[in-house]
Amino acid sequence: MTAVAGVNTQLTKPTARRRRDYLPYLLALPIIIYEGVFILIPILQQFFSSFTSDVLGMGPVRWVGLDNYERMFADRYFWNSLRVTLVFMVGTVIVSVGAGLLSALLLNQRFRGRSVARAVMTLPWAFPDLPTVLIFYWILNQNFGVINVFARFLLPWLEQNPKWMFDINLAMPLVVFIAAWKAFPFYGLVLLSVMQSIPHELYEAATVDGASRRQAFRYVTLPELIPTLMLMGILACIFAFRQFVLIFLSTGGGPARATETLVISVYKTAFNSFDFSYGATIGVAGFAVVFAITLAFAFLQRRQEAAAGG
């Protein structure tokens, strides 16, 4: 009765209703202003910068039109960074989501000390980036790293310790490993929570139908996980694309640009070479890549929804 009365009051007072209609906008205003000032304006400024030439301390900023884009498309290091970014992204997504799925399957089983195991699994994710890099830096040090003991044991024919993160061929797999080690608990925990929400009746029905454990996974667990896995995949792509700290602190993009992703390239161009305009141009290219990934995800999601609806 009170609620109905409340509704009637609103209907009979148009000015009060109008005032209340503004309230959501007013409440959203701070975040809109924040996003505008700290995100939208810098993005627009970056777009603008990509059409200029700015050599710091050497005269005014000049408008150069599409020159920076022309330079970028002819720049083999840009294409190298793009390739490295894609390799890092794909590698990190496969390893981190794969490891997350495996750990979720493992932790979904009943065993003694399961809650402790779950807590331990989250540790890498909870670790800050800097100590993580320092730990791996020392483990993988060519002269003093503990990994050399295992390498010498497993590969006795080695004449000297591998260069690990300073080896052009090993640097990328190792950086992928570090990034995946840090990220997999997040994916594991999300997938575990989805697994635990799958109705037990489905597994019982599958058992009654004579399904093996592998078949139960293939026909019951996996279909239930696919929407989440897709979301995890896209998130992992974006997280991997944005990864800066782990790569920069561990290899600095080296050796010989072997781990120089687009983000690292933007940083080095802008803040080491002080070529802000060209750095902005590479940044715009990076923005386009993330935008394309997001669009692809939206497309896949819509298609899946349509298939489910049909």
Binding site: F166, P255, A256, K268, N272, S273, F274
Partner: peptide, 22 residues
């Protein structure tokens, strides 16, 4: 001398290639 770091950014990645024996 006015663009010391810019020149260094050109040299250092190639120097790394040399050290890596690439």
């Amino acid at each position: 001398v006015l663009f010391n770091d810019e020149l260094g950014q050109v040299v250092v990645p190639h120097f790394e290639e040399i050290l890596a024996g690439a």
